[in-house]
Design a protein around this nucleic acid. Structure first.
Length: 355
DNA sequence: GTACCTAAGCTAT
DNA sequence: AATAGCTTAGGTA
């Protein structure tokens, strides 16, 4: 696999200035390396919002002060003159491999706490979220389930890439438009604001990912039940990274067939859990309700191999319901409708000019 | 000890 | 990839 394959599926360039004759370029030329890895980690120029036909709204670019690199981590001890928020001191992870079939690393933290906090605030404010409802057959009768958390999702399976300019889906190998449809879902590329984090996470965990699933647990009543990420479209022993931003929540694990094998660890802001090997096929995990917990964002990084995975993930994490966006005035997620936010945007714009 | 309360764990649906 | 309802655990006066 080429070293820069993780970039191929997504709209991304290191410059704000659009090429004047892009439409005349060969499609393949969009995929040529345009910057060294170091340059890509060190983005400092302000980029335009990310747009795509399947985004409900443009998604704000990452503030240049949020830098992901170990080098910036060293700059934090310069007496405070740097305006950058350092990524990390790269503390060695705690290894969990003493229990049967468990192969897991806990980076505590993975991101510097202050960077995690800023990233948390930014993502909650700027990303579109969903509160998916769906029906299941429970004891023979259809029951409506309200997913007990807000979700958002970006990515497409490894069979496809997004055209860097138009955003249409192309065959990953042939670089030509795909001939099949994705019934019931509208895949969308990872927005620029998540790409530096993606690349940084790929480099430090030594894995590639093509899907980012974002969960927002607004309080301790939001949760996720015991499950495994063991679907066939992830492969046999998938590597999955899970980053916590915001409030601490317990992450509870139990072995599928050995009831005495249990594990609970508090995940704090900036912590990352890397699950690999037989962890998914042999263990279940959950984030149970906790009466007094505050709001938390969780980002999971996965590599989806096939179309079925894309369809499954968009069904359960985007769905067909309304878009929710963070409302600073009320401090909660609020149903968002296109075109009804203009009055608020005016205020936002004036605030931005002042800062 | 014992009554009472709350949070967390367990299980059938 | 959930939830209601019940049971258990643990704190406190």
């Amino acid at each position: 696999m080429p070293s820069d394959v993780h970039l191929n599926g997504h709209i991304f360039s290191t410059t704000n200035a659009p090429s004047t004759n892009m439409s005349k370029r060969q499609i393949t030329s969009f995929f040529a390396p345009v910057a060294s890895k170091k340059q890509r980690f060190d983005l400092t120029s302000k980029l335009p919002p990310s747009t795509h036909p399947n985004y409900p709204h443009p998604i704000t670019c990452l503030p240049p002060a949020l830098v992901f690199s170990s080098r910036q981590g060293a700059d934090v001890n310069d007496g405070g003159s740097s305006s950058n928020t350092a990524a990390t001191d790269e503390i060695a992870p705690l290894v969990f491999n003493g229990k049967p079939d468990l192969d897991m690393l806990h980076y505590q933290p993975f991101l510097h706490r202050s960077l995690a906090q800023e990233l948390y605030t930014f993502l909650r404010r700027e990303l579109p979220f969903y509160r998916v409802t769906y029906s299941i057959k429970r004891d023979g009768t259809d029951t409506v389930v309200n997913t007990p958390r807000y979700t958002s999702l970006f990515g497409v399976d490894a069979m496809c890439i997004f055209h860097p300019e138009t955003g249409t889906l192309l065959d990953a190998e042939k670089k030509l438009p795909i001939k099949y449809a994705y019934p019931g879902c509208n895949p969308r590329p990872i927005p620029q604001c998540l790409l530096p984090l993606l690349e940084y996470t790929e480099a430090r965990t030594n894995s590639s990912y093509n899907f980012l699933l974002i969960n927002y647990y607004s309080n301790g009543a939001d949760s996720i039940a015991f499950h495994s990420d063991d679907e066939s479209f992830l492969g046999e022993n998938p590597t999955i990274a899970s980053l916590t931003l915001g409030s601490t929540r317990d992450f509870v694990m139990k072995h599928k067939t050995e009831p005495s094998q249990k594990l609970s660890l508090p995940l704090a802001s900036g912590d990352l859990v890397l699950m690999k090997g037989t962890t998914q096929p042999r263990w279940l995990h959950s984030v149970p309700k906790r009466k007094h917990s505050g709001p938390r964002i969780n980002i999971t990084f996965r590599f989806v191999k096939t179309r079925k995975g894309t369809e499954n993930y968009y069904r359960y994490n985007v769905g067909t319901g309304p878009v929710y966006r963070w409302d600073e005035a009320t401090g909660e997620m609020k149903v968002w409708e296109r075109g009804k936010e203009e009055a608020v945007s005016e205020v936002d714009a004036s605030v931005k000019k002042e800062t």
